[in-house]
């Protein structure tokens, strides 16, 4: 009898612990300046976010679809041309072949695309225990929960619960799928020294880099909403005009 009670108790605890471990954490919902029909990006946050990407993320993550010239375009971080040229020149790209038929390295210019940390995907996998760090160009649009999810994930690292087995090269994150992720915690207090003097808490860095990544995925967001407002206003006015025109035309029927 005692054995049965013990078995049932442990069985119950086992089953309920499954329930605890499988608890789904909804992503956090910070207020984003770009949300809503009149949302726009925060210029300063975008610039800080670029700094976080360059100094922390770009070690493993490429951003192939972005070019250094995007950094000066309207609706983005809007660095000056000189700043962007200088930032591009910090990286080297392969060019050529030259007159001798050889490829050579040269500093990047505005028209070049962001330099990838890897020569190919396979190299990326090998350096990261078989997991490929995804390209971040459209990551915010490629994940359920978008900016909220990315932001939460970046600060969602915690000590795993005592009963969970975590392999090497895998980390516990409460917002990750199955609460496990192959990416180690990227953001630590003062991990980046912001050029504008903002205090670099993990939350601040996560906020800024998520803002930057959202812009990277949707560089036309501001123009889109601006034009959208004009288009819908126009259509509403036109619908009123057509409504009255229609009424007039039908007035003498019936």
């Amino acid at each position: 009898m005692k054995k049965i009670i013990i078995k049932i108790t442990f069985g119950f605890l086992f089953l309920t612990s499954y329930g605890f471990a499988a608890e789904i954490h909804e992503p956090l919902h910070p207020d984003w300046s770009f949300e809503g029909p009149f949302g726009i990006y925060e210029r300063a946050s975008l610039q800080r976010g670029y700094q976080v990407y360059t100094e922390v993320c770009s070690g493993c993550h490429s951003m192939d679809l972005l070019s250094y010239r995007n950094l000066i375009e309207e609706g983005g971080p809007e660095f000056s041309k000189e700043q962007a040229k200088a930032m591009a020149a910090m990286f080297e790209v392969e060019d050529g072949p030259n007159e001798d038929g050889e490829m050579y390295m040269r500093p990047a210019i505005l028209s070049d695309y962001f330099v990838s940390p890897w020569e190919n995907k396979q190299q990326a996998r090998v350096a990261n225990g078989g997991a490929y760090p995804p390209d971040l160009s459209v990551i915010v649009k490629a994940r359920e929960g978008g900016a909220d999810y990315i932001y939460s994930l970046l600060i969602g690292y915690e000590d795993p619960p005592s009963d969970m087995e975590i392999d090497d090269g895998v980390y516990y994150n409460i917002y990750a799928k199955g609460e496990k992720i192959a990416m180690p915690q990227p953001l630590y207090e003062d991990g980046v020294e912001y050029t504008d003097g903002t205090v670099a808490t993990p939350e601040q860095m996560a906020h800024d880099v998520t803002m930057f990544l959202t812009w990277a995925a949707e560089p036309k967001l501001e123009a889109r909403k601006r034009i959208g407002f004009k288009v819908i206003s126009y259509l509403i006015i036109l619908s009123f005009l057509l409504y009255f025109t229609n009424r007039r035309i039908w007035k003498d029927t019936h």
Binding site: P37, G228, V231, I232, L235
Partner: peptide
Amino acid sequence: FLVIFAGFIFF
């Protein structure tokens, strides 16, 4: 209809 359509496209 276009008002709804535009709502999707732009927002």
